[in-house]
Design a protein around this nucleic acid. Structure first.
Length: 136
DNA sequence: GCCAACGTTGGC
DNA sequence: GCCAACGTTGGC
């Protein structure tokens, strides 16, 4: 099982929107590196959801429930990917960007190293650390 | 193929 | 509101 982190601007699409729908299509990713990561997603993978902008924090978990498929909103001739996510949980404690930056074991997170990337992999030990921070 | 100009993202 | 990072566009 793999862990991922996806970023979203809550003003345009928030974790709450996903929670209300239960399941939804995660589309609109228009960055090649992010697309290449999406291609490696598998059903059952867990996804940390990050709110950019004012919150700058991990706010919840979702689960990948489909294979990656061609983004239905992609323009003609363009190959982008989408995946279906199901809402899992709101994190008991939001894990803020500042806290992530302050954690020695999270310095390799692409969230820090590449601030504009919107889909990225998380190692299982990083996931463990983040989940501890979210539950303590 | 290079590079300047410009647009977008996202943190500060 | 500003700026850094980075992608895209278009002239040459």
């Amino acid at each position: 099982m793999n862990y991922w982190l996806v970023k979203t601007e809550p003003e345009s699409y928030s974790l709450g929107d996903l929670e209300r729908k239960g399941e939804d299509c995660w589309d609109g990713v228009r960055n090649h590196q992010a697309r290449n990561f999406m291609a490696k997603m598998n059903p059952g993978d867990l996804v940390f959801v990050y709110h950019s902008g004012k919150q700058k924090a991990l706010v919840g978990m979702a689960k990948v429930i489909s294979e990656p498929y061609s983004d239905p909103k992609a323009e003609e001739g363009e190959k982008w990917l989408a995946v279906d996510l199901r809402f899992e949980t709101n994190l008991p404690k939001h894990v803020g960007l500042a806290a992530i930056k302050a954690a020695d074991s999270l310095q390799d997170l692409l969230l820090i190293r590449q601030s504009r990337l919107s889909v990225m992999p998380i190692t299982s030990s990083e996931a463990e650390t983040l989940l501890k921070m979210a539950n303590s």
